[in-house]
Nucleic acid binder design. Structure first.
Lengths: 341, 341
DNA sequence: TGTGTTCTCGTAAACGTTTACGGAAAAACG
DNA sequence: CGTTTTTCCGTAAACGTTTACGAGAACACA
């Protein structure tokens, strides 16, 4: 059905080598024949077969993003990545690269799926998200020398890959500062596993800011739960039942915050009225919740574009330059003040 | 880096043909040598190069989903498709197929991107969403004979492809029934362009139900807006300012509903108190909004799984059977009663 | 006219698979 | 023991590209 380079050659009565050179803009082909080839290609609706091209060139011209749905999000999905992917795709397309999104099952950590992508050479590079503090995926990719970039930092892999992260440490500190300025001294933190690096960073910022204000860090005010609604629901009552309960809570995640607020409501405590609430990573859910939750908003679409640039710059074959540049960036989170604090 | 079938053959001192046959489970290879090949493959960490395999087999073993972000969703994305894709991927993986998600830019209709996927043979079949009443993508795919399935129905393409849709017509009617049962006679409908087939179906159900109840359809109570928050915001005041304003509004979409409720609030009208509100396609936003919006919930993950089955059954190369079966299904939407009506 | 240079193109190999074909060896059968 | 069948494997072609190499033609220059 699809016309091949042989069809073009036969149609024009020239060799396939010349056709290929003409299409790829090489110098050693007569301007006249090149035009004839281009015209014929347009007329016969030719476009190169990717498999053939990949096989010969040893490159697929596509980048894989490993998308991992949140556990417990059976009903609806994570809106977080869509604008990020939009930006990523837009920038990659400018270099003629395709973005392929590899879906994981909720819960699994994609080590297996990642291996498959790498070993079957489905993509020339991959992009990871939800980086862990020690991340076996990163260890694996550096070990086999496969190009990649990460949304989020990790201690794994040294400085061998580009990464773009949000400044969760500063956001954690900013949240504390804001609450202290409003007279709070008992500030709780609800966080996910410290394996997730953004959880670790958030808590570090939270702790540092408390100390800066001369407030002792009370382990009873720090609770760890699953990074979903059920997690916030289950864990929030714990900190509320401490002997000296908090007057403010910082949640590390929108889903945890919503679950936590539900638990608070069941205890007869009204967020924004009886207790202050701040969420580190904002979402539309925070905006429409009642009371609207104060939070920190990431700029997802530009982050996608930027990470694409950074990834491309790190691969000699894609960067114009010979020397690859590893870029790491940390972007600020912007506070969106609403009604919950 | 990755070992090829030649490495295996050299290592075992047999020909590549035998290695390939052993790996592919063909009958004409000695059980003993097969085991040796399998062991060596595991030891050398062999996995077949996709480009080579695709080129020879003429199939990519991957299915493309054309994901189209909503216009105006710059800040956050559409959570709708994530669980759908999770189900789709899970089922495809069972047949050894990869899912690749092709991102579009917000707003563009992906005709160009679709052509590229088809013409460069990136995938063996594609899955479309947001079907339009007359859909040029469907026309194109049927014209060139490329296998596909759709999430949503269309008038285009006849009966040549599998489709899975939600029963928007029944949901529209159910919403009217429910409101009439509660005493409402002036019921407005806020809908997107009728090009979007679910908008058309919804309105048909709405009209039919009104007539069944002996209520005249008032064009002044039907308004069309962009399928996002701004659309609902802009259009809702129109119907409220009609000479005989509605006592209830049905929104075709969560984003439109949220925008509409914002507009209502600015007019001093409280949803759930001064006016009844129902949303056709529910989302977490509806749940957390205040008041929580009554809506109809789709079962997205099972829909993904089902559409994968239907797609596979329609392609002789994938279905076990010789005759391909085109299946079309319409799934019910389940009402989730909350506080807004 | 002879020599060297530049343009332009065809030839053929290569990328990693799969598979049709044929042939040698082994087994079955008379 | 001869013939037929079966089992197993190697050979080579093919999928659609890209590209190194070389060769013929045209041109420049002395």
């Amino acid at each position: 059905m699809a016309s091949s380079i042989h069809d073009l050659a036969r149609h024009l009565n020239i060799s396939i080598g010349t056709v290929s050179r003409a299409l790829n803009g090489r110098a050693d082909v007569n301007a006249n024949t090149r035009q004839r080839v281009l015209d014929a290609a347009a007329k016969l609706n030719y476009s190169p077969n990717q498999s053939g091209r990949s096989l010969r060139r040893g490159a697929t011209h596509s980048i894989a993003f490993m998308l991992q749905p949140h556990p417990g999000d059976q009903q609806y999905g994570e809106p977080f990545f869509i604008p990020f992917l939009t930006g990523l795709q837009a920038k990659l397309a400018e270099s003629g690269l395709d973005l392929i999104v590899v879906m994981g099952a909720p819960g699994d950590y994609q080590q297996e799926r990642l291996r498959r992508v790498v070993e079957t050479r489905r993509a020339d590079a991959v992009v990871l998200a939800y980086t862990r503090r020690e991340d076996e995926r990163i260890d694996y990719l550096t070990r086999v020398g496969f190009p990649f970039a990460t949304l989020g930092r990790s201690r794994s892999g040294g400085n061998s890959y580009p990464s773009l992260d949000l400044d969760f440490e500063k956001a954690g500190a900013d949240a504390v500062d804001r609450l202290v300025a409003r007279g709070h001294r008992r500030i709780a933190a609800i966080r996910p596993s410290l394996n997730l690096n953004f959880g670790y960073l958030f808590l570090a910022g939270y702790r540092k800011a408390l100390r800066r204000h001369g407030i002792e860090v009370d382990p009873g005010l720090i609770a760890k739960g699953f990074i979903n609604e059920a997690g916030g629901d289950a864990v929030t009552p714990q900190v509320m039942r401490s002997k000296d309960p908090p007057t403010a809570i910082i949640f590390n995640n929108d889903a945890m915050a919503l679950g936590g607020c539900k638990a608070l409501a069941e205890m007869g405590i009204k967020p924004g009225h009886d207790i202050a609430v701040i969420v580190i990573v904002d979402s539309p859910l925070c905006r429409y919740f009642s009371p609207a939750l104060t939070g920190f908003r990431p700029r997802l679409e530009p982050m996608g574009r930027r990470l694409a640039e950074m990834l491309l710059a790190s691969i000699p074959a894609f960067a114009g330059t010979e020397r690859a540049r590893i870029i790491r960036e940390v972007w600020p989170l912007e506070l969106i003040a609403r009604d919950s604090d």
